[in-house]
Simulated scan of single mutants.
Amino acid sequence: MVTEITIQDSERKMLSEAGYGDPAIEYYLGKKHMGSIENANQISFKVGSCGDTMKIYLKVDEDEIVQDAKYEITGCAGAISAAMATVDLVKGKTVDQALKINDGDVFRVLESIPEKKHHCIQLAVKTMHQGLEEFQMAHVS
């Protein structure tokens, strides 16, 4: 247990020194929306310009409210923290409301990430939007 705390403290310090704000660091360390969703309504996949990859799992109810979302990510701390924040912003929203969430909304939640990692926010938002749009196309009545 002592080793785990020491490693987390070390990661927290490194991320802070690199320019990540406390919320971004917590999202990265906690990874609370990481994984898959069994019986997801939509699964979508996107590769960023940097090579980071994201797979989004969406669970949307009959009223088109996003009940849950999870990401599987191969990427850096910026990608992971941006994706986790994006999920917090869309859960409980209608698909149309969730599609209005933008990079600036995610950046405000994270408070700060290094400038060279801003593309990670774009990837998280684009992946979410792609999943929501593909859900809408598949469920047009």
Rank of each mutant, 00 (worst) to 15 (best):
M1G: 13
V2N: 14
T3E: 15
T3R: 13
I5K: 13
T6C: 04
I7T: 11
Q8M: 14
Q8L: 13
D9Q: 14
M14F: 10
S16D: 12
S16L: 08
A24C: 06
I25W: 05
I25D: 12
I25N: 04
E26H: 03
Y27M: 05
K31M: 15
G35H: 06
S36T: 15
S36V: 14
E38M: 02
N39T: 03
V47R: 15
S49P: 06
D52W: 04
M54P: 11
Y57F: 14
L58S: 01
K59Y: 08
V60G: 03
E62Y: 00
E64S: 10
Q67T: 08
A69I: 01
T74D: 14
T74E: 14
G75H: 05
C76Y: 07
C76S: 13
A82P: 15
M84V: 04
K93Y: 10
T94I: 08
V95L: 06
Q97Y: 03
A98Q: 10
L99W: 11
L99N: 08
L99C: 13
L99S: 08
N102G: 15
D103A: 07
G104A: 13
D105P: 14
V106A: 01
R108E: 15
R108F: 13
E111Q: 09
I113Y: 06
P114K: 02
P114N: 03
I121V: 15
K126H: 12
K126R: 09
T127R: 07
M128F: 06
M128W: 08
Q130W: 00
G131F: 02
G131P: 09
F135K: 02
Q136A: 15
Q136Y: 01
M137F: 04
M137D: 12
